[in-house]
Design a protein around this nucleic acid. Structure first.
Lengths: 216, 216, 216, 216
DNA sequence: GATGAATGAGCCTTCATTCAT
DNA sequence: TATGAATGAAGGCTCATTCAT
């Protein structure tokens, strides 16, 4: 008769033991990814690093891409949470931008390797591309929403397209983080946060109070 | 990491025909890299695209990394050359920014794909990484110089560090190009150039004429 | 960018050496199939039996199924040729039936194992099923044509559907061959040919001359 | 070949619940075998189809071959039973042939799939093969006996060897069933039964009443 | 120099079976 | 007994590189 069903995606673990093993694989996957890169990221390596046997990998993941997806979602979740400026930080928009950039940069330091891996995997796998875009969209949307609120409050240049602007300024921060942490351009973190924030604020025409940007 | 095994490195071609074949391979390699990504970049594919037979590849290149090096060097050379084109396009700073961003975006579209590959190459060869950084440095320096001139002319925010600012704004354009061309975020090129330019100008506090930025 | 083309089917060999290797693989494949069955039929085994290295297999065949296809076509071709009763054998229809059955049975002795393998492979691969049907169709068509000619000459029962009849009587011979040669039911080949032929002739109501079937 | 390793063969279940589970596995195994073929016949699939958990399989069966054996024995048992049904349907020989072929075809449709699997089982267990041959023998004997009676009654060609003829005509029906149900040659069941019966009757020279075969 | 066949380590994945709970 | 996680040998296939012609 001919096989035609698609391979059943591994069911989520039911027992505690199972959940623990799955978590161990995800976290081992992340470590392997950060330490050996995408080319060293094999089911075998990851299973070994997680202290389980070879085939156990496939008890929980359909393929190495599947695990990558899980790792990315974890990392992205952490990063998104970490970079979220808690609402009560300050009411001052500029301070919020500074805080946001500082956190983003820090979060990136941990996550950048993983996220760039996905882009590498993306060139041979449309699913990965979707994953990259999905994570990015999170940030873009948040950035665009923030800008829109400022515009509505009359605090930012209203002629800017929120989405496009969020993409561009987000790109700036992301790529600076990459240059600094992955390509190891020796930059002072404080100075970078300061500049990114001022450029960002000026770019959107932020004028939080009479007199505009903070004095230098 | 770098190469260290002893293997007769292919001698540079002596005959015209040889040089032509080698060039064909490089240019085919670049096309393949841009169109199919690193994962589609195999000696076979490249040889086929260059219209030569399978084994000929190794007459000219030691390995696929070797060819990548040659491609990167070519692309870098082109970008160096392009950057020398004195664009006496206009005296108006804003127009120059627009023009510069437009060119940069275009140039980067093709080059960024290739340059990003370097980071993927199995054992990222330090030499090639250095080459990439060198290309980046070129643009950073140019950007920093431009900003410095504007500052000296009193046309831009003098409290900004030229280099840091150039890095950040360059990163913005580079990453937007990547997002648009490699990750295929569907953006209108005209709108992108417009926004990048306005953000850039506002970020550095450009006020070229009485009244500042162009009216919208 | 994403891989989307289908794997290029291996090109047919250009050199003599290539053709020889390919033939060696096909013939080794056949031997392996006959001696170790479908479960022992692995690229590795076949390559080894052909005296070539592991990867060479994939220079000529896309997959093990691909080789199976080639083997089957070879075997089927041989068998079809072998079982073809040359036109000048006899003019007498009954003699032709006897001759045809004798040849079919003999040919089957060599080919049956291979052909049953395909049916085994067919249960997990639609392509194989098509192959089985393709080979079978050859025989069915030939049988049906033969019967139709007899009917038109008024020598056979005209109320029989040629195709259905050919399927049924072909099935009889094929399965008897299988029972005899593969399940090793101890039967006398001469007696079998004799009976198959008489049953066949009587079944279609053959009356070649006044008096009908040969006297016993 | 047969089993020879030492492993605690699962003891037959003692409790009612155990027996029920075992039966469920056998019947699920048969379904899976018929619907998905030998390649779809895995302990996991069968356990799932039986509604029990994964590992329970090995509580009752030593291996998948072990289950196959149980299934074959069940099917064989059914066929034995079916063959005992004295079909005093009609006294007319031709009608009996028709009826017999109809039943045979139906019975074989389900059974042949299972019985053919035996030939595929990794190391075709001699025991099971014997079982298959035994089932076949049953039908051959019955067919031969029937023919002998007709011959003695002067209703069939007396020069035919009963056993050989039964083998050949049984092979015809069996193989047609296989072609139709497993290889899915699209044939009309009614037409098939009709043709098989007429061919069978004509083959043995059946002349049940003055005038011979039924008019068409 | 050019050609295309040959090589084989390495990788991903499957699945029958065992084991701890 | 039942469960579902764990195991790891085995197998198919890829692809960068080498080699004979």
């Amino acid at each position: 008769m001919g096989r035609s069903r698609t391979k059943p995606a591994p069911a989520p673990p039911v027992t505690t033991r199972g959940r623990r093993t799955r978590d161990a694989l995800i976290s081992a996957g992340r470590e392997v990814l950060e330490q050996r890169g995408w080319s060293g990221f094999s089911p075998e390596t990851v299973a070994h690093a997680a202290g389980v046997s070879y085939g156990t990998f496939y008890t929980y993941f359909e393929s190495k891409e599947d695990l990558l997806g899980a790792v990315v979602r974890t990392v992205a979740g952490e990063m998104f949470a970490a970079s979220l400026v808690s609402p009560d930080t300050a009411n001052d928009p500029y301070t919020r931008i500074v805080e946001s950039n500082r956190r983003y940069l820090r979060a990136w330091a941990g996550a950048s390797k993983v996220l760039r891996m996905v882009e590498q995997a993306a060139d041979s796998d449309e699913t990965m591309l979707a994953l990259v875009l999905e994570v990015r969209e999170l940030y873009v949307t948040r950035g665009a929403d923030g800008l829109r609120r400022l515009q509505e409050a009359g605090l930012a240049d209203q002629s800017l397209d929120p989405r496009l602007t969020a993409i561009a300024l987000g790109a700036m921060v992301e790529q600076v983080a990459h240059v600094m942490y992955s390509l190891r351009e020796p930059l002072d973190e404080g100075a970078v946060v300061d500049h990114l924030s001022r450029l960002w604020a000026a770019a959107i025409g932020l004028h939080g109070r009479p007199g505009g940007l903070p004095d230098r």
